[in-house]
């Protein structure tokens, strides 16, 4: 169905500029997809923030944190995970720079390295779950500690899966220009996974030790 164009002629469009010389593929915050990523980080960041606020709210109800008879999570695996996560930033930032500079070889192996790093961290995370010293159904403290862990683990697993899939795509004979900005964005998402963990780590592992029973 052709639209009604009566009146369009009267506007007498005049071409004052040519956009064909603009670049087609850009990396970083000029790329639309990176903005979408920021949007989703805001959404998920709000989720983390509200979950953290729920921790403080429940703790302030006065039953002790953790409630009497419950031990705080064991330190060992939480510490290994946190140090490992921080260490992963070194290859991650390196990978982002290499991708930005269109170094395909470095990008391929960097993505493989980050996938392996991520898988190892997921392994450590499994041990963290085993040493939380509380079941989610035991009390509200247990529920909310598990909530923080599950929320973060979801992001961890999602990003490792993303990284693995993208790494696979990079080993095709010919890759598209957008794979470079995709890799840079994936590194930024890993930054998000790392940065959001730090306050959660404090809430899960340190707050119960500092707050203590009622």
């Amino acid at each position: 169905m052709p639209g009604d164009t009566a009146g369009l002629e009267a506007l007498r469009p005049r071409v004052v500029g040519d956009l064909s010389g603009l670049p087609r593929d850009v990396i970083g915050m000029r790329n639309l997809n990176s903005w979408g990523l920021v949007g989703f980080m805001l959404i998920e960041g709000m989720g983390f923030g509200l979950a953290a606020a729920s921790v403080l709210y429940l703790a302030s109800q006065g039953a002790g944190w953790p409630p009497g008879g419950v031990l705080p999570p064991d330190h060992l695996f939480g510490l290994i995970f946190t140090l490992g996560l921080l260490a992963s930033e070194w290859p991650n930032r390196w990978l982002a720079r290499r991708a930005h500079d269109h170094d395909l070889r470095a990008m391929r192996w960097g993505m493989v390295l980050m996938t392996l790093f991520g898988l190892a961290l997921i392994g450590v995370r499994a041990f963290e779950f085993m040493h939380l010293n509380v079941h989610w159904a035991a009390n509200a403290y247990g529920s909310v500690i598990w909530l923080l862990m599950v929320l973060h683990t979801t992001h961890l697993v999602t990003d490792v899966a993303d990284t693995a899939v993208q790494a696979g795509w990079l080993f095709r004979r010919r890759i598209e220009e957008k794979q470079y900005s995709g890799a840079v964005d994936n590194c930024a998402y890993w930054d998000f996974v790392v940065v959001t963990w730090l306050p959660l780590y404090a809430l899960i592992y340190w707050m119960p030790r500092l707050w203590g029973p009622a």
Partner: peptide
């Protein structure tokens, strides 16, 4: 008032 300025060059 017309004429309206436009740009072309998108694919």
């Amino acid at each position: 008032p017309p004429p309206r300025a436009v740009m072309t060059g998108l694919s």
